[in-house]
Design a protein around this nucleic acid. Structure first.
Lengths: 143, 143
DNA sequence: CTCTATGCAAAGCTTTTGCACGTTA
DNA sequence: TAACGTGCAAAAGCTTTGCATAGAG
């Protein structure tokens, strides 16, 4: 099933509608590589539909997040980033504090940690929303 | 060496000065249990010195962070939290996405993960700035 | 006595909201 | 044709900044 169909279906379940604006936002996210900010989505979308408002972007991103079609990522700046995951597993992101580049970590590395946290503190982490700050190899070599 | 002395020394290195305002902010942080927002610091500080401005709080928190005397924590709301670490090791925080409570994780749990990330991606994480989102035990039982 | 720090007021930035008008199913 | 969605404008919330004055060393 295509992403758009999935979106339409989920919207339908809640009595909501698939509009051209919602389609466009999803379309843009679909063609992005890696996480993008709401502002970046706006920029792309704006070129195709100059009328489309930022508020519509935010409202659409909220829905897509709710449906698990995109994941929201915390960054070190003040804004959120969004990544289209489709039917893939959500994954953990690492953000270089120097260059801002975002890396993706192997999910397996977190399995043991997850079990320990659950056992010790009863806390169940949601890795999909997590960002690990740090320094990437390139920036480290430059320093 | 006391925190204040450490602060004064670090300030001195940069030709900066230890003012009564900076002392007060550090003092307040020192007597807090767990992480507090800039606004919470402001509230406490305000009772002792009603003149002291928010901008001074932010400027001071930046310095303290730079010196490693406090660590800044991302939360699930849009604001930052700060925790006095003094000479202790910085630690990883977990934030419950439902009740907003902040937990502290055992640093040992992260050692293996750290090695793997460094080996696989050349990425060196800065745990002191990391926050793990998730659901705490209490909220889970209520659901 | 010099250079830094502060308070004040205003602006910045991302995100949210209220409302009248369009549009979808 | 009844909800629902959109654009617009304004506001909200946290944080930053410019500038004149006050204060530390």
């Amino acid at each position: 099933m295509s992403c758009e169909q999935l979106f339409r279906e989920q919207l339908g379940k809640k009595g909501l509608r698939l509009t051209s604006q919602r389609k466009l936002v999803l379309e843009i996210l679909h063609h992005q590589e890696g996480p993008v900010s709401a502002e970046m989505v706006y920029d792309s979308v704006h070129q195709l539909d100059p009328q489309l408002d930022r508020s519509t972007i935010y409202r659409t991103l909220d829905l897509l997040k709710e449906f698990g079609i995109v994941q929201q990522i915390q960054s070190n700046d003040r804004s959120s980033y969004y990544e289209h995951t489709g039917t893939d597993q959500p994954h953990v992101h690492m953000v270089c504090q120097k260059c801002g580049k975002i890396f993706i970590a192997d999910q397996k590395l977190f399995e043991k940690l997850q079990k320990s946290l659950e056992k010790q503190l009863g806390f169940i982490p949601d890795w999909s929303q997590m960002t690990i700050p740090g320094i990437c190899e390139t920036c480290r070599q430059q320093a």
